[in-house]
Each structure stands twice: as C-alpha cells, then as structure tokens.
Design a protein around this nucleic acid. Structure first.
Lengths: 225, 225
DNA sequence: TCACCGCGTCAAGATCTCGTCAAGGGGGGG
DNA sequence: CCCCCCCTTGACGAGATCTTGACGCGGTGA
C-alpha cells in the first residue's frame, strides 16, 4: 500500500488530509513540525511527503534540503504563499510540486498520484544472483543456492538492500546509516559492524573471509556479485 | 544540452517561451497542433514536453495518451482552464505537472527544471582510463588493466581523487593538503611525499619513473592520463 | 666545489577501525 | 502475563592505517 507523510502544524488540514487519504487506501503518517517530519521520514519511509511551508520550527527550504541530502522521496509542498519567488525557491531546493492553499482536494490527490507514479517507474529486474545465493529485491527475500530461504530481520534486510542496490559501488558508512537508521545516526558505526557480521554469518560461505560483503576500512562497504 | 518541445497553437506564447527558454540555454522545438506534436516527440526526442490543452485538432488527453503509450518523457500541461476536473483528468492521463494561464515565467521554468531533474536520475559515472589502470570515481575503485583490483586506503583514495579530478592540470600542494587533511595542514608537505610514493607504488608500472603522477618541484603534482 | 633545499624512501610507533561476543531492554504475539 | 525475537550497547584484541623522524639523492646557486 502507498504511504504518505503529512507535515503540517494546522490540525484542521492534518485531519482533512488524513480522512481523504485514508478513504483512498493510503497509509497516513503525520508530523507537526520540521524536526518531527525529518525523523518521521527516516523512520516510516513514506512513498510521498506532503510538506507545509511555514512550520513553527524550521524554514521550508531547510526541511527540503534535510531530506534531499539522503533520499529522493517525492515532496509536494503546500503553502499559503502565492509569490512566485517562494515557489521557485522550493522547487529548486528539490521539491517535486507546489500547491497553494486553499487547494482543491481532488487536484491535490491527482498531483499525489502523479508523484507516486513517477517515482515507481522501475519495473526492472530486481534480482541479484551470486554463486551462493539470490537476492530478490521485489519479493524482499534471499534464497540460498539449493532452495533454502534465508531469514533476515527488517534491519538486516534494509542494510542488504542498500548494499545490493549499489552493487559494485562503494557505499559510505554515512549513506548506510542514513538509509537504514535515519540521518541522525550518521556516526553510530558500531551498528554497521554488528549487522554486517550478522549478514555475513547468514550469507557468506566463509564469514571470516567475505566474498561478497567487503569492508573498505575507514570508508564503507561494498557488495560484489 | 536540455531540449524542450513546446506544443501550442498560440503564436504569442510559442514565441515568448522560445525566447525565454533559449536564453536559458535550452534547445527549443515547437509544434502547432497535436498531430505535429506527437510527430515532433518521435522525431526530436525532447527531454521535456510543454503541452497546451485546447489544441485545434485533438483533445489534450488524447495527446497525452498518445505519448504515454511509448515514452515516459515528462509532460508539463499548460492550460487556460482552471477547473479541477480538467487538471485531474490531465494528471491522471499521465501528465507530470499542470500550470494554468496566465502563468509566471519563473515558476514555469522552475517546474521545468524540477521535471528535468526528476527524469535524469543517473548523472552517469565519471571514469578515467589509462593504459595501466581505470579509476572509477563513482564506485570509488581502481582496477588495474587485467582485472586486478587495487586496494587504496581512505587517504590514498582522497589524494588520487583530487588529482584525477584536476586531470592534466597542476594541483598545488596547498590545494591537496587542504582537500585531504584540511586547511590547517597547509604546510605539512611531507605527508604528500609519503602518500604520493604509496600511490605510485600501487599504480605506476615503474614507480621511480612515474608516468601518470608527475611531480612539479616546488609547486605541486599533476595527473596525466 | 660546497651548502642548501626539496623530494623520494623507509620503518617504527601511535592511533584508529573492524570483527566479535554477550548482556540488557523493549515490543509484539501467544 | 510470559516468552521470544530483535535491536541496542559496551568492551576487547587483532589488524589496518596514519603519523613522524631520519636518511640519501639530485638539482641549484653561490
């Protein structure tokens, strides 16, 4: 199901959006200010963010920049400000669309559908095969060569997914931490050590001498198919 | 260069857009009706389409559908009609954005930039190839010609990256020290000597007589591909 | 010719980073 | 209510990486 995060400090709008979105089978999360919004994106991983400008704690551009630093989730900006300058600033900061209040609910929903549609253009072949196991990105499943299914915890899977998506490329510790735990955990590198060890134990034929999940000391990790 | 196709039957708008877009270094194609628009997309393969609704020969939704059948090129709809119903129809037919006339040129340009930005997620990976090795900036990896992977420490990599990015140009000692160790280490030139030697040992076919990493005594270093 | 300077080289010690283990806490399901 | 699974956290040795000082060489100018 598609999930939406609404960041707004006006309760009336929050409620109106929640009702309308849930009626259309969206999963709705809400946040009342910028900091909570950033945290909520990291935690819930919504498919779209509806962001009100003029939040009490942060400038709109700051929130957009805070998101764009590590995720490409579509952002639809909602604002009472009609000035062109505002719109240009928000769009150039990385927003995907800009809707001025008062807005028509049907239009907003249509723009939301358009944003979601664009963001899921990847009917690619989401499957990475190695000599020892197969990672199926779509099914969120790892199968060992031989048919045995490998059980991964949610965190283990997110980490593996981030590494496999950048297959062959070095993925920075910061990138991994931001993607799996959220941007606030940029320095907790011991999480990575613990979970990489678990992944290796479950996937590598000889965990102490990894063949797929390589460490680049001081920089990050690399998945080599 | 980014190319834009404008499909509109009003000459005034066509001209205004052409002038503004060309001033921003876009390549502009135009078409005056739906049929010509479809043909122009097939022929020119523009990066974005700006589509006026209310063309003389076809309905807007038809044009959008005709494009979406075979391409995902971003479509920005331009229309005098404010009715929500119209907007929803166009967006659901596959348009990416909907701007009502009269529109602000700056806003339209910002929306256009946003559409282009979304459609180009792969700024492709920069690579530098020499006779003896290949430096892949995106993957942060050096591969010797023959397939062997060269292991570099973080400092070695940062230094190589700084030199390779200024490929062919002289990079001063100050620049290198500032980029790799921080601006406070401007005078510690012995660091450079140590790490350049390590890079040469790992990359040069004959380290004492470097072919790629040249020293410019008293000034800095130069990478020559 | 000699002194000087910048560079390349080397190796040892200090420091940082990684892998590993295990205990404790929380949350959800039975 | 209890149990189990999962996430968090701290500690430690081993290994990798960085720093630092010393030395010889070659070119340059006096």
């Amino acid at each position: 199901m598609t999930s939406v995060l609404v960041v707004d400090d006006e309760l009336a709008i929050l409620r109106a959006l929640r009702i309308n979105l849930e009626a259309r089978q969206f999963t709705v999360f809400t946040a009342a200010d910028g900091a909570a919004g950033l945290a909520a994106v990291a935690h819930h991983r919504p498919d779209v963010v509806i962001l009100d400008l003029g939040l009490p704690d942060m400038d709109g551009a700051e929130v957009i920049a805070g998101l764009r630093g590590w995720t490409a989730t579509p952002i639809i900006v909602l604002s009472a400000r009609e000035q062109e300058e505002q719109k240009v600033a928000a769009l150039d900061a990385g927003a995907d669309d800009y809707v001025t209040k008062p807005f028509g609910m049907d239009e907003l929903l249509a723009r939301l559908r358009a944003a979601v549609r664009r963001a899921t253009p990847a009917p690619e072949q989401p499957r990475v095969v190695t000599a020892d196991f197969t990672v199926d990105l779509a099914a969120k499943q790892v199968v060992r060569t031989g048919g045995e299914i490998v059980r991964l915890t949610p965190t283990e899977w997110q980490l593996l997914e981030a590494l496999v998506r950048g297959s062959g490329k070095l993925v920075t510790q910061r990138q991994l931490l931001a993607e799996v735990w959220g941007p606030a955990y940029r320095t907790e590198t011991n999480y990575l050590r613990v979970y990489l060890a678990q992944l290796r134990r479950k996937l590598e034929p000889d965990p102490p001498r990894p063949r797929y999940l390589h460490t680049e000391a001081g920089m990050g990790y690399r998945f080599t198919p």
